[in-house]
């Protein structure tokens, strides 16, 4: 069974289509990346799959569960990291992780395991006892990413996962995502960073004006468009559209 199946998914805000009909799938343990310019419909697609927004038309399933009709079951399987996500500034890093862990865990001991795992990923050490309001943007992003993967979800939906992180931290996060994927986690991510996409993803989907124009591995797309890198592929597709 595929982790994600998306068929002719559409979302309108008023009469304007934010997503004009997208189709793609993500296999189990696969890392699939959506790339596209601002306003292409990446975040709206991710939000529909994360059960935050309801599709206007079409269908999407996650491990067989319909995101609209079976949103409760879907939420148990996924973890979502929004692009501009924030954390509760009045809580400490550890309190935030505990709060989120307790929402996902079936028992307190499981919640503690989640927190311990997340604490390792953040690398924040004693700073986890400080209020989040004292964190830098990079520290907050690492905390949020750790929160997103600490439950080892079956599908992680990550919108710009390394945005705001420096090179070292970004590299670290990418290797964690890769490792968790190898351990069984499927990943749907979006990013503006083409290098990151090439390094991380098994396949990519190029989205523009609410439609997916191409899907495939980075190598296959580069060969098809005679491009040296994904940036050139992306540029050619957008130009031709």
């Amino acid at each position: 069974m595929n982790a994600v199946e998306v068929n002719d998914l559409k979302k309108f805000f008023g009469k304007a289509p934010a997503v004009a009909g997208v189709d793609f799938y993500i296999a189990e343990r696969e890392i699939f990346a959506l790339i596209g310019p601002n306003g292409a419909g990446k975040s709206t697609t991710l939000r529909m799959l994360a059960t935050i927004l309801q599709p206007s038309e079409g269908r999407a399933t996650i491990f067989g569960y319909d995101v609209q009709k079976e949103s409760g079951q879907v939420r148990r399987l996924i973890s979502y990291l929004p692009e501009e996500a924030g954390a509760y500034k009045t809580l400490t890093g550890r309190q935030y992780l505990s709060f989120m862990a307790e929402l996902y865990a079936d028992s307190l001991s499981q919640a503690k395991e989640y927190v311990a795992f997340a604490s390792d990923i953040t690398g924040l050490g004693p700073r986890l006892s400080d209020k989040i309001r004292t964190y830098s943007k990079g520290m907050t992003r690492k905390l949020l990413l750790a929160r997103a993967v600490m439950t080892r979800p079956k599908l992680a939906i990550l919108d710009e996962p390394t945005s705001g992180l420096d090179v070292i931290n970004a590299l670290e996060i990418r290797s964690i995502i890769r490792k968790l994927s190898r351990e069984g986690m499927s990943v749907l991510l979006s990013s503006h960073n083409m290098l990151e996409i090439e390094f991380l993803s098994d396949r990519v989907g190029i989205i523009h004006q609410g439609r997916i124009y191409e899907t495939g591995t980075a190598e296959a797309l580069k060969a098809k468009y005679g491009a040296r890198n994904l940036e050139e592929v992306f540029h050619k597709i957008v130009e031709n559209s």
Binding site: R47, A50, T51, I52, G72, R75, R76, I78, S79, Y80, L81, P82, E84, A85, G86, A87, Y88, K89, M100, L103, Y104, L144, R147, I157
Partner: peptide
């Protein structure tokens, strides 16, 4: 404002 709502809404809580 703090962009915490989206994360909360995607959690497995009714």
């Amino acid at each position: 404002e703090n962009k915490t709502l989206e994360t909360l809404l995607s959690a497995p809580v009714s």
